[in-house]
Design a protein around this nucleic acid. Structure first.
Lengths: 210, 210
DNA sequence: CTTTTTTTGTCTGCAAATTAACAAAAATCT
DNA sequence: AGATTTTTGTTAATTTGCAGACAAAAAAAG
């Protein structure tokens, strides 16, 4: 059980959680690193090493208790507690995020949606109504939010990031296809959908030569 | 200049392309690995190694010509040629993908949208009209598509993947939050939005201890 | 109750990826 | 035109990540 956890391990955690959730739903109560490895296309060794970054959750000769391990990883991911989100940009992406059922199930709750376009302001999205982005300061003054979802056009993204930072927002989930320079102490995770699509294009173009 | 290109390099290619596009738009004609590295938060050494997987595109004492390098990487990614896409699932995600402006700009063109829900069939999305998913076979018989975007609920995803595979679709861009088992010779790239959000949650929870 | 099997947690070694180093080539300066 | 600076392409060193091995612990079998 180490102090430092590498980025590689962190990126695998949601995968563990997803599989454990599916296993639990299927009524599986116990699983060995070998079985889980077969399911997740990882070696048993790697699974044991990953899990032991956080503590010995297994029992020798038995394996891991699915619900227990899922609980631990949920805690480690920080999704055992609910998170409040605001969405900046009520376009297609903003819309999709606001209504994506998995997020709500996992405790990520959208508490407000903002847009600068007056045509969009007032429209209902999910259980929210789109607000003017000029109300942002006022809103954040009175309400604490954990995460801001940035779904604005590229030219507005950096400026909005800094505006959010100044208002005390610490975490941003960015959908603008650009590399933002996060102010200190701000955490930004990018989605970059185009990157993912371009990788698909790369693999299509080069799949034969292998 | 090697034959095999590692996954790590491939994942960085879209980032290079994005920065080079931005540089070109800003009127920058030449750049050194050092400058590009500072911009992209990578070491100059890594940039030179990455680029040299594909050939010596630079000139000593000068650096790289932005537009030339962008062209090369565009070719390598396979985005110099247009791609046709169909979207399966006309929910929020399907909607967002169909209308995301960057994709159209980059030559990814949506040629049809399908949904099983009869309420959604017939609705206009972008310049398309939603079709019944039962027309899928007929459509793919007469029209070749490069990529299928999978934006259906988890329980339908694996079955739809196999159906697409049987119809000759080779590349799938999957938004269903589950791990699909791709039939041989099919390329699947996952988006897994929840994973990304959970990683944000992890970093929020653990940022202080660093 | 003893023996055998299972399976973890950890240690050791290998492979992959990143960084550093440097000669060779091109550009710039004097 | 020669000297100096810049910067690449490539090789070497370092670091990181992953897989194999195995003792110790727990469970299962006899």
């Amino acid at each position: 059980m180490a102090g430092y956890v590498s980025e590689a391990v962190i990126k695998r955690l949601p995968g563990y959680y997803r599989h454990l959730r599916e296993l639990e739903a299927a009524g599986v109560v116990q699983i060995s690193s070998q079985e889980l490895g077969k399911r997740m296309q990882l070696t048993a060794s790697q699974i044991r090493q990953d899990i032991n970054c956080f503590g010995g959750f297994g029992r020798q000769g038995y394996g891991y208790k699915v619900s227990e391990l899922k609980g631990h990883i949920g805690e480690i991911l920080g999704i055992d507690k609910p998170h409040s989100m605001i969405i900046i940009g009520a376009g297609n992406i903003g819309n999709a995020v606001a209504q994506y059922p998995s997020f709500i199930k996992e405790g990520f709750q959208t508490v407000a949606i903002f847009d600068k376009d007056s045509q969009k302001v007032g429209r209902p999205i999910g259980n929210q109504t789109v607000r003017t982005v000029s109300e942002l300061e006022e809103f954040l003054m009175s309400t604490h939010v954990d995460i801001a979802v940035l779904a604005v056009p590229v030219p507005d993204a950096q400026h909005m990031l800094e505006r959010l930072g100044a208002l005390g927002v610490q975490a941003v989930w960015n959908f603008a296809p650009t590399d933002l320079k996060p102010p200190k102490e701000m955490i930004v995770v990018n989605v970059h959908l185009s990157d993912s699509l371009q990788i698909l294009s790369y693999k299509m173009t080069h799949c034969d030569e292998k």
